[in-house]
């Protein structure tokens, strides 16, 4: 079996009925999809299979042989966040962070599908099956709506940081 995970083609050696979640986490060491309830109930294992959000805990790897898989790792880099990741970061949409990978992946698919600003009802529909214990969902909904409107980057209420001065080590005995 073969999978293209975040743009890299991978040969898969796990047994065919292994859940995709465990193939990603244990065989390929892609650990952003979390093993939450493992019953399809909490949503934190969500990955994109050929662009569609799917529960990787309920998906046998053989059923998606040859597919393109995108996880959180494939969306952005720490220094170059994707719009949804940036919005989550800037708007405090994560607390413990366990649900965040699934939320971000599903929200990315929603915004891609819509291709423009998403409304509150659409976020509720798309993320309704994702469980969050910490945030009360408020800032997550705000972040997804902001990301779909391109409202990321430096916000007005944040002070501008100046140019980083070169770090000197003063007072050296030399």
């Amino acid at each position: 079996m073969k999978l293209t995970v975040n743009g890299i083609e991978q040969e898969i050696f796990s047994p065919p009925l292994t859940p995709l979640l465990h193939v990603l986490r244990d065989e390929l060491d892609v650990t952003s999809p979390k093993a939450g309830c493992q019953q399809g109930g909490c949503g934190t294992c969500t990955v994109l299979i050929d662009g569609e959000p799917r529960r990787s805990c309920l998906t046998a790897v053989a059923a998606v042989d040859g597919s393109e898989i995108t996880t959180l790792e494939g969306l952005g880099e720490p220094e170059q966040l994707s719009p949804v990741q940036a919005a989550f970061h800037e708007r405090y949409a994560a607390q413990c962070g366990f649900c965040t990978p699934g939320m971000v992946v599903a929200a990315t698919a929603l915004i891609e599908r819509k291709g423009g600003p998403v409304e509150r009802d659409e976020v509720l529909e798309a993320l309704g099956g994702h469980y969050c214990r910490c945030t009360g969902y408020v800032k997550i909904v705000d972040a997804v709506m902001a990301a779909s409107r391109g409202q990321t980057g430096a916000r007005e209420d944040e002070p501008e940081t100046g140019e980083e001065a070169p770090v000197m080590i003063p007072g050296s005995p030399a």
């Binding site: 309704g128 099956g129 469980y131 214990r133």
Partner: peptide, 17 residues
């Protein structure tokens, strides 16, 4: 006995705050 049997509020239960 399982995750789905414990009913924590989901996104649709979110009231106006």
């Amino acid at each position: 006995g399982e995750f789905g049997a414990y009913l924590g509020p989901a996104l649709h239960d979110l009231p106006e705050l």
